[in-house]
Design a protein around this nucleic acid. Sequence first.
DNA 1: TATTGTTATACTCTATAACTATA
DNA 2: TATAGTTATAGAGTATAACAATA
Lengths: 158, 158
Amino acid sequence: MTEIETKPLPQRFPEELVTSALFLLKRLGMTAKERSFDAYNEAGLHPYHHAILAVLDEGSLATQGAIADTLGYDKGQLVGLLDELEEAGLVERRRDPADRRRQLVRMTAQGRKTLERLRRLSSQLEDEFLAALSERRASTTPHAAPAARRTAPAELPA
Amino acid sequence: MTEIETKPLPQRFPEELVTSALFLLKRLGMTAKERSFDAYNEAGLHPYHHAILAVLDEGSLATQGAIADTLGYDKGQLVGLLDELEEAGLVERRRDPADRRRQLVRMTAQGRKTLERLRRLSSQLEDEFLAALSERRASTTPHAAPAARRTAPAELPA
DNA sequence: TATTGTTATACTCTATAACTATA
DNA sequence: TATAGTTATAGAGTATAACAATA
């Protein structure tokens, strides 16, 4: 019995999607996010932790609400992130004696060292990511198998 | 009673984040995604629906698995998306009589009209998004209040 | 036994809202 | 009553796995 013929689909995204800036931005953003999460996760941290430490490096002593406002994070989300940072010894929290509702957050010496490490990690990630994009743009042969490499380049996964 | 002095945080992201390509890409991608979702949602659809219709426009008749592979979607995810497209009358599904495991998917005439509409929507979104980015780059005054407008420009929200 | 589609489940990320303790 | 922080809940979005029908 003959199967109904289905015109084979191209093994790539439709042209109208690939040429859409919003589509590409979304996928690039997702890839950037996954990259960052994976790399930070190996360090036992999250990009959000880096962002908080960076804020504390600029302001030295801040309330949780100020940090949340600066980064645009939800204040509930911030509680958990600070819990983790505090448990890792990277920040300290103490109540403002003049207004016991406020939590004053300060980065510890260990937190500062970690921040330096995260900066190097971020810089390295950026270099790898942009290099992978350049490589990919350079090879225009359709469906060309990329050269084997240990660290997978920007594959723009689903 | 004097409160403990907290050096006021700048109402913007730390420099090291703003200059990070991965950070910017992630935020741009999130904004692009939200933009698209909101706009498509007003049309009662999802960007994924557009992607599926675009694939069907290239291949005319496809199995669900082929669509999922092409777009990199999970096959379980695709079932629900096709259910919605079918209910809206934009695609038809029927079993392949030669292999009753396979579902053959075809775009309807109404689906084709909708696809044309989504293409216009996508193009319009793209213009607005890129225009908003250019505007923002043009105004370099820090904290300058953006001119009031009905459709919010690329605000890079949290 | 393998494959196609289907359904169920879980996990992450995010947003909202209820709650407490202070003011 | 309002505010800072905390906790609980719910919703997308996504990935995994169990399942049924067919090959």
